[in-house]
């Protein structure tokens, strides 16, 4: 039984077909890559999985449960968390507060308990504060806890965003171009962290990426999309020598 199953998904916007009858399956504990040239429909798949878009046809199964069209804020409770292609941290808030937002659902106290500062407020805040600081520790972000999120370097912001996603306690982590805009040091640092948290938190990871070297290093398996269609599925090593994949990528480069 697969952990995540994309089953015959088609997505049309007006008359344009962004995703065409796409199916693939991700096993539990895998790091699965979703690659392809710009406009191939990778982020669209993420938006369908997280409920931001409702597919024209097909369904999404998570551990055999149909999660198609679950509202974006509810999908979190099904164990799905995501990062964004262009980092989207909460700009006015500290790194710690950003992470604490991820723990929102795990802090169980009511609005009135907050207003009247009843004991449960203190207990629960202390609890998530501790968990958030543990998470910062794992990511090596402790020193930045009180910094404003947007004052940090790009690489650090990426890490904060991944940590924030992890705070929601997911089983499936969706990473949208996590290495984009990073230098090679930052990229290898990021790779180490992704491997580390995958094992520590028992995650399955689906990642969108452009950088073939990074994909090669990270992914157990991948699907290559071009114009919304699957043109390859298999091991990264085989993808690099696949004719269709190569021409799709070269085509992309010649456009660019």
């Amino acid at each position: 039984m697969s952990f995540l199953k994309i089953d015959g998904v088609t997505m049309q916007f007006g008359g344009v077909t962004a995703i065409d009858n796409l199916s693939f399956e991700v096993e539990k504990g895998m790091i699965y890559g979703l690659i392809g040239p710009n406009g191939a429909g990778k982020t669209t798949i993420f938006n369908i999985i997280t409920g931001n878009l409702y597919p024209t046809e097909g369904k999404i199964l998570l551990e055999s449960n149909n999660i198609t069209g679950t509202k974006p804020n509810k999908i979190v409770y099904k164990g799905v968390a995501r990062t964004f292609q262009n980092i989207r941290l909460f700009k006015s808030m500290s790194v710690l507060d950003n992470i604490l937002i991820g723990f929102d659902a795990q802090a169980k106290y009511s609005y009135l308990e907050a207003i009247f500062r009843l004991p449960r407020y203190f207990k629960q805040e202390k609890f998530i504060d501790k968990k958030a600081k543990e998470l910062l520790e794992i990511f090596g972000l402790t020193e930045f806890a009180d910094s404003k999120a947007t004052d940090l370097s790009y690489g650090v912001q990426r890490k904060v965003e991944i940590a924030r996603a992890l705070a929601t306690n997911p089983t499936l982590l969706l990473l949208d171009e996590p290495a984009a805009g990073m230098n090679s040091n930052e990229t290898s640092d990021l790779a180490d962290i992704i491997f580390k948290i995958k094992d520590k938190f028992n995650l399955t990871v689906l990642l969108i990426e452009h950088d073939m070297k990074f994909v090669n290093k990270m992914c157990d398996k991948l699907t290559v999309l071009d114009y919304g269609e699957k043109i390859f599925e298999g091991k990264p090593a085989d993808a690099i020598v696949d004719k269709k994949v190569v021409s799709a990528y070269l085509g992309d480069f010649s456009h660019a």
Partner: peptide, 29 residues
């Protein structure tokens, strides 16, 4: 102030800063 320095205040600020990201964190905006 009690609202601001609680999970509800944080959620309100997150809605202000980035509604989509807040939703992705499970906040019912």
């Amino acid at each position: 102030l009690n609202i601001i320095y609680s999970k509800y205040g944080r959620a309100m600020k997150s809605v202000r800063d980035d509604e989509d990201a807040a939703t992705a964190m499970g906040i019912n905006t």
